[in-house]
Structures are given as structure tokens and as C-alpha cells.
């Protein structure tokens, strides 16, 4: 039973990071129909900023907040410079732009920060707690908590604020939203900013595990994408649940069934789920009425 809880807690910790990154993907997709393939690379870049700031100041809060401020600027600039000028382009073209951004951010990061891996400290470095025989890292609790808090704020904002209504309206129908006076361009900017910040937080929080490097987000980005697909790209709750499911399921299958075959088993099951429910666990089928 100790092993079960140990695996579940670790799964929730990594799953919450997949959820954060997945939420960023879905936010952009819902508002602009674009899947941002560069989300992982943008998060990596923000993590390098956090690492650099930490080296300069030795203050974790400064590094963390610095990465968030940078992500705000980065998200804004990417939308204004790369995405908005291509607003009339096809969706495929926009997605290819985000593929191009992968190369740009990876190349820039290599050129500016170098190609070495760097260790990065945890948010909380205090001693582990033991409940029964289960070892719990305060940092794991912090990661799960901060993820839940961020998601709660985001959900509240989307449901109850004017900006949230604007985001939902743009997500539902851009033209109607425009006609109703919704500042669609601002909604796009805001979505990119929020998504980039979510990615940056995921990057900074996963960095102590993966180390800071140009390849640090590869696995997280892939899993967040799968979390979004599993939960449903059409829902804001789905990717969060998808992230947690993948994190926990990965560990339980690895421990109780087969470590070597866990990836195959987990993703085969996910494919089966998607065959049964193609829009994801929380996705809805939108039928056009004639």
C-alpha cells in the first residue's frame, strides 16, 4: 500500500505539470483554433530565464517571477509578430508557423544559453515528510497545490469575468463575438500570454527533475499534448483531468503491470478511450443545425 500511495503522489506531481501545459495548449486552441507546437520550447526558454536570474540573484522568488514576467512579454510578442500577421492564413499555415517557432526558440536558446544541462533548485527544499511509511516531498505538495490554485483562478476568470466571457465567446464563434463588440484581438493576445505563462510555470517547476536544457520540455510537452487530446481539446476541465490521469496511470501501470511495457499499455488504453469517445473524456460534439 505504501508503494501505491508513493506512486500516486508522484503521478499527481508530474500529472499536474502536464495539466498546466495542456491547459495552455487548449486555451490557444479554443480561442484561435491553432495548436501551438512551440509551447514546450517557449516554456524551455522561460526556464532558462529563471535559471539565469537565479544564478544572478540566488533568489528563487525573483527567478520564478522573472520567468513569469518574461513569459508575459514572450506570449504577447509571439502573438503580435508571428501569429496575428498570419490571421488570414489557413490553420495549417498557422500550425506550421508554430513548428517554425520550435526551431527559432531552440536555436536561440542554444546560441544564448549554451547546450549544457544545468541543475535547478526545487521551489521548496525542506526535509521530506513521512506519513505512515509514505515519503512526501514538500515540493511535490507545493507543485500540486500551485497547479490547483492556478487552475482554480483560471476557471473562475473564464466563468465569471468579462474577459472570461470574451474568451468563451471568441472560442465559440469569432465573427459573432466581433459583432457583439468583443475585442477579439485582445482575446488572442491574452490567450497567448496566459498559455505562455502556464507553460513557463510548468517548465520552472519540472526543471529540478529534468534539469534546465534545450531538450528539457520534450517529454512534458508530448504528455501535455496527449493529456489535452485525452481530456478533450474542446474543454477546459478535460486537459487537467487528462494530465492527472496520465501522470498517475503511467506510474500504476509501470509498478503493477510492467515497467518495460507501461508506455505501450498506457497509450494503447488511451487510444481505446479515444475510439470510444473521439472528442476526449470531456469534449463535446458540436452539431451544426441546418
Amino acid at each position: 500500500m505504501v508503494e501505491f500511495f508513493q506512486n500516486v503522489i508522484a503521478g499527481l506531481e508530474t500529472g499536474s505539470l502536464y495539466a498546466l501545459a495542456a491547459l495552455g495548449l487548449v486555451l490557444i486552441y479554443r480561442t484561435s483554433d491553432v495548436i501551438n507546437f512551440a509551447q514546450g520550447e517557449m516554456a524551455m526558454f522561460s526556464s532558462f530565464i529563471a535559471f539565469t536570474l537565479f544564478q544572478q540573484t540566488m533568489s528563487y522568488p525573483v527567478a520564478f517571477l522573472g520567468a513569469i514576467v518574461f513569459a508575459v512579454v514572450l506570449g504577447f510578442l509571439v502573438e503580435r509578430i508571428f501569429i496575428r500577421p498570419a490571421s488570414k492564413a489557413t490553420l495549417v499555415s498557422k500550425m506550421i508557423i508554430t513548428l517554425g517557432l520550435i526551431m527559432i526558440f531552440n536555436g536561440l536558446a542554444s546560441a544564448i544559453f549554451g547546450i549544457d544541462m544545468h541543475p535547478f533548485r526545487k521551489a521548496l527544499t525542506m526535509d521530506n515528510m513521512t506519513i505512515g511509511e509514505v515519503i512526501i516531498q514538500p515540493n511535490a505538495i507545493f507543485i500540486i497545490s500551485i497547479t490547483l490554485v492556478i487552475m482554480a483562478i483560471l476557471f473562475y476568470m473564464i466563468k465569471n469575468t468579462l474577459m472570461g466571457i470574451a474568451i468563451r465567446a471568441t472560442a465559440q464563434n469569432e465573427t459573432t463575438a466581433k459583432l457583439m463588440g468583443v475585442p477579439v484581438s485582445k482575446v488572442y493576445s491574452l490567450s497567448w500570454i496566459i498559455a505562455t505563462v502556464l507553460g513557463a510555470i510548468a517548465g520552472v517547476l519540472i526543471a529540478p527533475t529534468t534539469n534546465v536544457s534545450t531538450t528539457m520540455m520534450a517529454e512534458v510537452h508530448l504528455k501535455s499534448f496527449i493529456a489535452a487530446v485525452l481530456g478533450g481539446f474542446g474543454s477546459f476541465v478535460g486537459p487537467v483531468v487528462g494530465g492527472f490521469v496520465i501522470g498517475v496511470f503511467d506510474n500504476l501501470v509501470g509498478y503493477y503491470i510492467s515497467l518495460q511495457w507501461k508506455t505501450v499499455i498506457v497509450y494503447a488504453l488511451l487510444i481505446i478511450i479515444l475510439i470510444v469517445k473521439p472528442t476526449g473524456l470531456f469534449g463535446k460534439v458540436h452539431r451544426k443545425k441546418v
Partner: peptide, 30 residues
Amino acid sequence: VGAADTDFTVPVQKAKSLNPDVVIVYSLAG
């Protein structure tokens, strides 16, 4: 384990449960 894995809870838990007196870690730096 996978070279790009981000969570090593399972292999380490399994290793611990087997109570070994030596563990061989055959993986690269990451």
C-alpha cells in the same frame, strides 16, 4: 527506464522493494 523520463518513482520503488545490496544504474547522464 526511458532516457527522457521525467518520473523515476516506479523503478526506484521497485528496486527498493527488492532490497538489493548493489544497484547497477546503466543509463546516461540525464
